[in-house]
Design a protein around this nucleic acid. Structure first.
Lengths: 208, 208
DNA sequence: GATTTGTTTAATAGCTCTATTAATACCGTG
DNA sequence: CACGGTATTAATAGAGCTATTAAACAAATC
């Protein structure tokens, strides 16, 4: 498991990233990280001084990645619906590729409110802008009678809820439905499509 | 903070419940529990022998409560839609009353897979029955052309996702949207209604 | 009131964890 | 090769945690 001498600092960061995202800050000891890297425990401190310091570096990386997920450029040649579909799907794909990420972030925010400042800085402008833009698009569509009245906030919360929560609750879902891993895959194979259908349907104009 | 002598055992359980749900198993020490109760640390062990033992009692209680949330009797005089609406709303209310519960359960399941057996036992029949019943109702509605084709699994996942995830992500939402507590309340005031609309709309028959 | 039983406390053993320090191994350069 | 800096290790201090034990205290019983 030992890496090139050159890469020791990075090896430690990578091992820490894997372990921290899996078990959280309190669930991992510097000894465990050292064991995974295949080096002496003191070396962790040599490169990163404190465990908290190392953790923060990992957390920042994850947070940056999380932000990049929302960063999707718009295709003006497409309809609002088609654009929305693309956004939902790429968000879903990004989460599916990192299923442990949401739990990690939510957890550490809860346990360590100090990270809040970090979040505020990382997301400073991007998310508000995203919301403002979505709000504009929505109001156009609503005025044109193409979708029902809904706020950008609610739509965003709906999408992120549907995309993320199933991954968070996977362990409990498997127990509820007494599914094995194979069955889970089959069930989940259809989720992305189902979510798109649900969202697009849910914003249709209601005709009684 | 000291309770009646009689109630010491229960006082410990209550304090433990509060602390464990807040910070998880690893985040709480027996010393901290004792401090909250206002008793000696050894007393925790006198009544519950081990920390893990005490935790398990707390976890079982929470799990039982969580199960009871899904346990809603059907009103046969109402339409499928109206029944569904009631089920969504009462599920939402139950979560809203215990906003920290979902995080606690998901977390401890992840950290401590031993709890899986406990879950399987607690949910043994209830959830599968619930799913089977829902499946039956759905297929009737679908055949009658009153709703679009959707599986009980997907519908359940949609509802739980929309109801639970916003509470999980509250801390991060507040950062994203730079909201204060007051604003959060306003935003959330409408959520329950929005979720019902979203779900009922999402299962409508699609007419192109 | 002495004795027994149950409750609570103080003290501490034993463990694990973080962080530091001093010593050692490694490697390039003069 | 010798020197000097960098990387790595072994050893350990110091703190916190769980669990145990023995002693102190309270209450009930005879």
């Amino acid at each position: 498991m030992t890496k090139l001498k050159e890469g020791m600092e990075l090896s430690i960061l990578n091992a820490a990233e894997e372990l921290f995202t899996e078990k959280g800050f309190n669930g991992v000891s510097t000894t465990e990280i050292a064991l995974k890297v295949g080096c002496n425990q003191a070396l962790i401190h040599y490169y990163y001084r404190t465990k908290a310091n190392l953790f923060q570096k990992v957390f920042e990386n994850k947070l940056r990645y999380l932000m990049s997920i929302f960063d999707i450029r718009e295709d003006n040649s497409l309809s609002f619906e088609d654009n929305l579909k693309i956004r939902i799907e790429s968000h879903f794909d990004a989460i599916a590729k990192n299923p442990k990420l949401p739990m990690f972030i939510l957890n550490e925010i809860k346990n360590n409110p100090i990270t809040n400042e970090l979040i505020r800085q990382t997301y400073k402008d991007n998310i508000p802008n995203l919301i403002i833009n979505l709000e504009k698009e929505l109001s156009l569509e609503i005025k044109a009678g193409r979708i029902r009245d809904i706020s950008a906030f609610d739509l965003m919360v709906n999408i992120t809820s549907l995309n993320i929560f199933p991954f968070l609750s996977l362990p409990i879902i498997e127990q509820f439905y007494t599914m094995d891993e194979e069955m889970t895959k089959v069930m989940f194979g259809n989720r992305k499509h189902e979510i798109v259908t649900t969202i697009l349907n849910s914003i249709r104009v209601i005709k009684d």
